[in-house]
Nucleic acid binder design. Structure first.
Lengths: 327, 327
DNA sequence: TTGTACGCGTTATCAT
DNA sequence: ATGATAACGCGTACAA
């Protein structure tokens, strides 16, 4: 392998100078710089990230924890993270943690070797665990979900308000019997969106009907399809359903269509996230949009600032209601 | 920071012994091992991946090049790669290279610092470039697409045969006017699938109609929707369409449904890949399935073997036709 | 079975 | 503006 010493020798300078060239140090005479650069090319020199890390105690690598890679929702956030990271010469390692084994693995790999400068969690479960574990001084930020503990700053939308807005929209369309399909598991966002749903109903003076709120175990459309069937089997079934995810909304749509109902005439459906699928499906989904890319970018920038020793407050980004055909 | 020296001191052994414990070296007396492990815990010791890399000249990190992260098709392959990698204590860095800038970035980050032990490309464009660039001895394997040059081994299905099978199926259903929606850009798989399409027609004694084959610029359903409209506007329009991607098939479906046609009665549609969307859409897609997870696993194992100095032949995995409603 | 000592390729400090 | 040199933390011959 060719190292800085070799370059130094060929260029007739010291390794210190080679290092300076490598790091764009201003105090290098232009002619010297040229000599060094020529030597580098001539020898086919490449820095060793490892050696650099060892000397600087920085890896320029951050870990991104994601629950489910097959959901493009997370892919979009990841893109935002990567964008911001690359602007600052950082790389992002993606780790999917849906299974228990993967979750464990992620945390060992996170804490065992000092491979990462920091971590960004897009997964409620991981975020909660991050808050309860000794981070050994590693920086962490949560995306989408705030940690119960306030040590980890987060970037998210106002979930409660967003859910309320969605339900208010349904109310404005004249609906009085509004159901909800939520997800279990104890994530904070599901609690918040549930609260938002209640807020809207309360404002409209409509009493809560617990049997109008269904919980599914995972963000998978078949589960929502079943939940919707249960809702539709009620004595006075909902005329509209608010779901906490577009995938669940698709399930609701399939259940309604399968039952011979017309959407939105017989049953209105509102989703959440505005993934690409939302516009594709027939009828196209009315849904709450989150600024996914921006959220990823902000999360990464937040982490970057933490790495420089700054303390970073959590931030809330704006959501919006995208009205299409389903409601 | 606490290093091996500190652990050694506390345990009353040498750093060599600590290193041996770290690497599960058999020649360490059990009692010694225990002493060392206790010292590690007591001090909160963590290895430095950087220092280890510097000493071993291995990073235990591979780079995965992916064209489009929002397509779950690639996410599934990535999962396979990660699975196999983790079994051997490797990490996988994912890099999306759809844009020119990202493509350039990927290659600089790949070749500049010696950060990665190897690279797996799932992107035709990247694979072609890998074959034309000085890899500096870095191992590379292609997933999904063979490199024109034979230096880079690949894992893929038999694309030509798979396409032929799909078209043969349509022929078996009585179709004689069969169109195709292919993708431009010069990827090998599109040429192969085109050949497979021709093979099937030839066997059936049906002359080629060039106007039956449409090319789109990217795997995006709106483009396929337009292409399908053009096909349907022909004097004797196809009664069936074979597409090289499920996303394109969805576009064809939307065009057909939008034109008031019934699928598969008036127009049969066959997709490719069997992504989750294929089963979700109405009517559910008949499509060619690729063993995505296994392909990823095999690609990673192939890379691992290369890293150990073995030479690895390319491999072809079996495909299958999944018959659903659309054809 | 265990210890000694050096090398891995950078950066950073202190001189000059 | 540049050079000499000591870290950085681990693996590994070679010895013992």
């Amino acid at each position: 392998v060719v190292a800085t010493v070799d370059v130094a020798r060929l260029a007739g300078v010291s390794t210190a100078t080679v290092s300076r060239v490598l790091n764009d140090h201003p105090s290098v005479r232009p002619e010297t710089r040229v000599k060094v650069e020529q030597a580098m090319r001539a020898l086919g020199f490449r820095v060793s990230a490892a050696a650099r890390s060892l000397a600087t105690a920085e890896t320029k690598l951050v870990l991104a924890l994601i629950p489910d890679l097959s959901r493009s929702f997370f892919a979009d956030i990841f893109r935002g993270i990567a964008t911001a990271a690359h602007e600052h010469s950082y790389e992002v390692l993606l780790c999917e943690t849906n299974s228990d084994r993967a979750h464990e693995r992620a945390f060992t790999s996170l804490l065992d070797a000092r491979r990462y400068d920091g971590v960004i969690s897009m997964s409620p479960m991981d975020t909660q665990r991050l808050a309860n574990v000794d981070l050994r001084g590693m920086s962490a930020v949560a995306c989408l979900e705030s940690a119960p503990d306030a040590r980890i700053p987060h970037v998210s939308i106002d979930d409660q308000r967003a859910a309320k807005d969605a339900v208010l929209y349904l109310l404005s369309k004249g609906h009085r019997r509004i159901g909800m399909i939520n997800v279990g598991g104890g994530a904070l966002y599901s609690a918040l969106r549930h609260d938002g749903y209640r807020d809207a109903l309360r404002e409209a003076g409509i009493p809560e009907r617990p049997d109008y709120v269904e919980f599914v175990d995972a963000i998978e459309y078949p589960l929502a399809e079943l939940a919707t069937r249960r809702l539709l089997a009620l004595d006075a079934p909902p005329t509209a359903i608010f779901t906490v995810s577009d995938l669940l909304a698709i399930g609701a749509l399939k259940a309604a269509l399968g039952a011979g109902l017309r959407v939105p005439e017989n049953l209105a459906v509102v989703g959440f996230d505005d993934v690409s699928l939302a516009a594709l499906f027939e009828p196209a989904l009315t849904t709450v949009a989150q600024p996914r890319h921006a959220m990823g970018e902000q999360a990464m920038r937040m982490l970057l600032r933490q790495l420089q020793g700054e303390s970073t407050p959590s931030i809330t980004l704006p959501h919006s209601l995208v009205v299409r055909r389903s409601a």
